Simulated scan of single mutants.
Amino acid sequence: MVTVTVWNEFRHERDSEEVAAVYPDGIHTVVADALREDGHDVDTATLDEPEHGLPASVLDETDVLVWWGHKAHDEVDDAVVDRVTARVRDGMGLLVLHSGHYSKPFKRLMGTSCSLKWREAGERERVWTVEPGHPIAEGLPESFEVPNAEMYGERFDIPAPDELVFLSWFEGGEVFRSGCCYTRGKGRIFYFRPGHETYPIYEQPEIRTVLQNAADWAAPSDGADPYFGNADPLEDLD
């Protein structure tokens, strides 16, 4: 069982009747339900809780942190960002969803602006599985469609992914690297583009399968801890 914390600003849902109609209890609850369906131990945290719901005691017990943010990236305290990125480098997995590309933790871990093109026109998105043998793609078809989506387009200012699992095409003609895998220190990071506050994308079965597979993939492994620093020789030296 993977221990997951789903983090959400939880602002749009309280500020907008349109968003509340789609996610009345918050995007985090829908994402959390998808992960519980897969047997994971899931808690949630939100921006306006003390320490944004992410004190050291929570992060230390979290195998995978899921991050959804959009309108309040700048309100995330740098001390919490320090804590999150340190835990990722120490082995905690991080799933960054949709507009979380512009979150402080993701930008710091990528070391780039993470900027992109965007357009909100409710257009169709076709998600192509370009790495079908990857664990995150298990159980998914060669492609699937999201009926209404906010467009994200290249260039996406990120480092080249270690592995690209999904590529999206939009009705307006743009393409986007929409499923990107990275390793930072001992931690695995997966960025997944689909998802928007005014569309019920996280209810879609294919999207929920991606979330479930990604949590399994990003969970810490039992590999050996690396040693850094001055080292005695393993063999006799002349």
Score class of each variant (00 low, 15 high):
Leu211Met: 15
Leu234Ile: 11
Ser113Glu: 05
Trp169Phe: 10
His134Cys: 11
Glu75Asn: 13
Glu18Thr: 14
Phe176Cys: 06
Trp169Glu: 10
Gly172His: 00
Phe10Trp: 02
Pro135Thr: 00
Asp216Trp: 14
Val2Arg: 03
His12Ile: 02
Phe176His: 07
Leu140Ala: 03
Glu203Met: 11
Glu138Ser: 13
Met1Ser: 11
Glu206Val: 12
Glu235Arg: 00
Pro135Ile: 00
His73Gln: 15
Glu125Gln: 12
Gly93Gln: 02
Asn213Val: 02
Pro141Ala: 15
Val64Glu: 07
Ala45Gly: 01
Ser221Cys: 11
His52Val: 04
Gln204Glu: 14
Glu61Gly: 05
Leu164Gln: 12
Ala149Ile: 06
Pro132Tyr: 10
Met151Gly: 02
Asp43Trp: 14
Lys107Ala: 10
Tyr191Met: 08
Leu97Cys: 04
Gly69Tyr: 00
Gly133Arg: 12
Arg184Pro: 05
Val2Ile: 08
Arg14Trp: 03
Asp60His: 15
Glu51Met: 04
Glu120Asp: 13
Arg155Phe: 06
Pro205His: 09
Asp82Ala: 10
Glu18Phe: 08
Ala137Gly: 12
Gly26Phe: 01
Cys181Ile: 07
Val19Gln: 08
Thr85Pro: 08
His101Met: 08
Gly187Asn: 06
Glu171Ala: 09
Glu142His: 12
Ala32Lys: 09
Val81Gly: 02
Val19Asp: 03
Thr209Trp: 11
His134Lys: 11
Ala219Gln: 07
Ala149Val: 06
Glu51Val: 04
Val80Gly: 06
Val81His: 03
Thr183Pro: 00
Leu59Trp: 04
Pro24Thr: 13
Gly111Trp: 11
Val146Lys: 00
Asp33Val: 09
Ala231Pro: 05
Val80Leu: 03
Val42Trp: 13
Leu35Cys: 03
Gly39Lys: 08
Gly26Asn: 05
Trp217Lys: 10
Asn148Ala: 04
Gly133Asp: 14
His40Trp: 14
Glu206Ser: 12
Val130Met: 07
Glu171Pro: 09
Phe228Ile: 02
Asn8Thr: 09
Cys180Asp: 14
Met1Leu: 10
Ala20Ser: 15
Pro233Tyr: 01
Lys71Leu: 13
Met92Leu: 06
Glu51Asp: 05
Trp128Thr: 15
Phe192Val: 03
Arg208His: 09
Ser103Ala: 07
Val165Pro: 12
Leu94Ala: 02
Asn148Tyr: 01
Thr29Ala: 14
Leu167Ala: 06
Thr112Phe: 01
Tyr102Arg: 15
Asn8Met: 07
Asp74Arg: 15
Leu109Cys: 00
Trp118Val: 15
Met1Thr: 11
Met110Leu: 10
Lys71Trp: 09
Glu125Thr: 06
Ala160Arg: 14
Leu47Asn: 04
Glu125Ser: 08
Asp74Pro: 03
Asp162Gln: 05
Asp41Tyr: 06
Arg184Trp: 05
Val165Glu: 05
Ile207Thr: 00
Leu54Thr: 05
Arg119Ala: 14
Asp63Thr: 07
Tyr227Ser: 12
Trp68Arg: 02
Glu145Trp: 13
Val64Ile: 09
Ala20Pro: 08
Asp90Gln: 10
Gly133Ile: 09
Leu94Ile: 07
Gln204Arg: 11
Ala21Cys: 12
Arg11Asp: 15
Val175Phe: 04
Thr3Trp: 11
Ile189Lys: 02
Pro24Ile: 09
Pro50Val: 04
Glu163Tyr: 09
Ile158Pro: 00
Thr62Cys: 12
